[in-house]
């Protein structure tokens, strides 16, 4: 199923793109799985996504842990810990 992926801050810069549509293969069931799969797509991806402990994510605009199943997600955002305020 097509999934819209958004990247922010240094994740966006390392990947060189702020959004893309992907079709994850079978076996990609959680956000952590998705990040692991995306990390294999090239050098910038490996740099941005190689250490999932440094990343945070949201599914359909709600924060979600790495263990969260993608389920019927339409939009997944991957980004560093937030620094607003």
């Amino acid at each position: 199923m097509a999934l819209e992926i958004l990247y922010f801050a240094w994740v966006r810069e390392a990947i060189g793109s702020d959004a893309e549509t992907v079709e994850p293969p079978d076996g990609v069931e959680t956000i952590g799985d998705l990040i692991g799969w995306l990390a294999g797509r090239g050098e910038g991806y490996a740099e941005a996504l190689g250490e999932p402990g440094r990343l945070r994510a949201a599914i359909d605009q709600v924060f979600a842990s790495m263990e969260t199943p993608l389920g019927e997600a339409r939009e997944v955002a991957i980004f560093p810990p937030v620094t607003g305020g």
């Binding site: 949201a58 955002a77 560093p80 305020g85």
Partner: peptide, 27 residues
């Protein structure tokens, strides 16, 4: 509200310095 929005609002700060350096702020 100020404590929670530090951790629960999706903002990211980049610092830009007078000498041309710039860096993302770490949480």
């Amino acid at each position: 509200v100020i404590d929670w929005l530090k951790t629960d609002a999706p903002f990211w700060k980049r610092e830009i310095f007078g000498d041309g350096r710039s860096q993302w702020v770490e949480a």
